[in-house]
Design a protein around this nucleic acid. Structure first.
Lengths: 206, 206
DNA sequence: GTCCTGATGTCAGTTCGTGACATCACTGTA
DNA sequence: TACAGTGATGTCACGAACTGACATCAGGAC
């Protein structure tokens, strides 16, 4: 028989997610994770760069999907439509793993360190999109702007998807959010649509 | 005479920036910073939450400026114009400290950990903007979207300002970038403006 | 069979970050 | 003038995050 139980990496991922959920990210030590997976701390660091990386898989398919979708979009499409197309192509990656994504998101939402890492990952996706748009012939600024705005809209759409359970698909939220974005420069009835203004008194100057 | 030299915090900030510049962020230990400032490591942590915080001042005036400018903008303005107005109001904070800002940015650009923190700070600004927009009567989604798009555009404008020395002011870059954003959904001559397409072959799948 | 490879273990060390307690110039007050 | 209180700092001890160097040893290649 084999010298070790198979898929050490998978066991570490599973153990980490369980512990992060059960007792919180900060309160969980790497030694605990490794122990639960039947491995040592040192081995954890052979699979993951740090304690946070275990939640951010390195075999992430999103960059490739975004790059391919951007490259293959019809040529006459305006930049933000290309980005919208690419993001909708990527949506199934989330939708197909909904349970895991939600569990993961709950852990991230509870910890600022993990939120930082999440933002970094999104920024990396924006960089991927930027490069792919440049390869379509866009100048650097336009490419970067379309990419960053696309990711900005994705953030909002993703949060809505997470918070409005099975109301819509993520792809639908992305489509709707980017449609909303188009009207942000017209002086329509944006103001005081309803009176549900929250007078909390705090300014959120964190 | 006083028991200690005055402005320990300031000395720590100065020492940290010098060392981060000179030998890099990672290679600099907190003990070194404290030593150079004539203090101890423990005292460093009384002034700053961690090694990175020394580059991100806690008395940051930006949230208040953005919140105030958002609250005081003319009512009939479309959401993205309100955000543009607020960002331009905030620009002098950077422009007035240009030397320090550039030095700080060089350090951040050289280190992923610091880039993460920078992204987190920008996300906090987006949250501040979102709240201020909601208090103007915008619904949550529109507010969040306008705020995130504004910050996305700010990122691009800021990077252009940093890289194009004294070409334009930051405020001008912000204005131009957000003007560009308005045309991102129209199928104009975005494609192949010139032939400076870079065929690097790599997909940037980091 | 022997050699090599690769995933893991062991161990020692550095650095980050924190809690607990000590010090002592300065400040106010009787 | 004495004396208590305050606050910025120092000292010490410690847990936990990472890392480099070397050891182990099943299984596959030849």
């Amino acid at each position: 028989m084999s010298r070790w139980k198979p898929d050490g990496r998978g066991r570490l991922e599973k153990a980490a997610l369980e512990l992060y959920n059960h007792k919180g990210f900060e309160a969980t030590t790497v030694a605990e994770i490794a122990g639960r997976a039947g491995l040592t701390e040192r081995t954890f660091y052979r699979h993951f760069a740090d304690k946070r990386a275990v939640l951010f898989p390195s075999d992430n398919p999103l960059p490739a999907i975004l790059a391919d979708a951007t490259a293959s979009a019809p040529v006459p499409l305006p930049p933000l439509e290309v980005v919208t197309h690419a993001l909708i192509e990527a949506a199934p990656v989330y939708e197909e793993r909904e349970d895991l994504v939600r569990q993961r998101q709950a852990v991230i939402a509870a910890n600022p360190e993990l939120q930082e890492r999440e933002l970094a990952k999104l920024a990396a996706l924006a960089a991927t999109l930027t490069q792919a748009l440049r390869e379509r012939g866009l100048d650097t600024t336009t490419a970067a702007l379309a990419a960053e705005i696309g990711i900005a809209a994705f953030k909002v759409a993703y949060e809505r998807w997470i918070n409005d359970p099975d109301e819509h698909t993520l792809a639908q939220h992305i489509r709707e959010t980017l449609d909303t974005a188009k009207h942000l420069t017209t002086p329509a009835e944006h103001a005081a649509a309803t009176d549900n203004v929250s007078f909390t008194g705090q300014q959120g100057t964190a």
